[in-house]
C-alpha cells in the first residue's frame, strides 16, 4: 500500500534493549511502554492511511483506544522512565488527534510532511503575505471599496449606509472562499485516489502543489474577511 517505506525504521526499548517496529507503542519483548523517539507520522501513529478523506468515527475510535493504552493516569505508580514515556506518547497522540480531526489542519500537516513547506494560517497572519495571483482582481476591488468606505465614514455618513456597502463588498470574497472550500475537497479526493492508485511521484507532486496554492489563497481570503470584520466593528 505505502511503497515509500524502503528502510525499516525501528525503535529501541529503553527497558530491555529489544527492537520494536515503528508505530508500536509497547515493547514486543518486555511489554513495557516505549519511549517516544522515532515514529512515523500522525497518520500512521493513529493507524490511518495518509489520506485526506478520513473516517471520522475511526479516528475517534482509535484515539480513544490508544488513550486507554497509555494515558498518564494509568502510569501513576510506574517507574519515572515509563511515566515520562506515557506523558510524551499521550501528548503526541493528542497533538495528532487535534491535527487530523479538522480537514484544514490535516491538509496543512500533509503538505508539511510531503516537504511542501508551512502553510499554517497562524504563521501567515503576521507576515505581509504577497497577494496570490489568483486573487489580484478581488483584492484590488476590495481595497478600492475599503478606501471609499473609510472616506464615507470620515465624512459622517450614517453607519447603516457604509456598513451596507461593506457587506456588499464582502459578497465576492465570500463566494471565492466557498469556491476554495470546494476545490480543496476535490483536490483531497484526487490525492486519495492517487494514493490508492499508487500514482507516480510527479502526479502526486502536482496535486500537492495545487493544494498548497489553494491553502495559501485561503489564508489570504480569511485575512481579508477578518479585515472587513474589523472595519465593521469600528
Amino acid at each position: 500500500m505505502t511503497p515509500e517505506v524502503t528502510t525499516p525504521i525501528v525503535q529501541i526499548c529503553r527497558t530491555c534493549g529489544g527492537g520494536a517496529p515503528v508505530d508500536v507503542h509497547f515493547c514486543p519483548q518486555c511489554t513495557k511502554i516505549l519511549t517516544l523517539g522515532r515514529q512515523g507520522d500522525y497518520f500512521s501513529f493513529l493507524g490511518l492511511p495518509r489520506k485526506l478523506r478520513i473516517d471520522a468515527a475511526e479516528l475517534e475510535r482509535n484515539f480513544r483506544a490508544l488513550s486507554r493504552q497509555f494515558h498518564p493516569d494509568y502510569f501513576y505508580n510506574a517507574p519515572p522512565a515509563e511515566r515520562r514515556a506515557s506523558l510524551e506518547r499521550t501528548s503526541y497522540l493528542n497533538d495528532a488527534y487535534r491535527t487530523l480531526k479538522q480537514p484544514i489542519s490535516r491538509i496543512a500537516y500533509l503538505l508539511e510532511r510531503e516537504g511542501m513547506g508551512t502553510v499554517s494560517a497562524e504563521r501567515e497572519a503576521g507576515a505581509a503575505a504577497q497577494v496570490p495571483p489568483a486573487l489580484l482582481e478581488e483584492v484590488f476591488a476590495l481595497n478600492e471599496e475599503l478606501d471609499e468606505v473609510r472616506s464615507l465614514r470620515a465624512a459622517g455618513t450614517p453607519d447603516a449606509e457604509w456598513k451596507a456597502r461593506l457587506e456588499r463588498a464582502r459578497t465576492p470574497i465570500d463566494t471565492k472562499r466557498d469556491e476554495h472550500e470546494r476545490q480543496l475537497e476535490q483536490l483531497s479526493d484526487r490525492w486519495d485516489a492517487a494514493v490508492d492508485g499508487n500514482a507516480a511521484a510527479q502526479e502526486r507532486r502536482k496535486i500537492l502543489e495545487s493544494l498548497r496554492d489553494r491553502m495559501l489563497e485561503r489564508n489570504y481570503i480569511n485575512n481579508l474577511l477578518a479585515g472587513i470584520e474589523r472595519e465593521l466593528s469600528t
Binding site: P72, L87, T90, S91, Y92, N94, D95, R98
Partner: peptide, 9 residues
Amino acid sequence: MRNSTIPAT
C-alpha cells in the same frame, strides 16, 4: 489552542 486535549505540547 484552547480546548486542546491535555497533555498537549
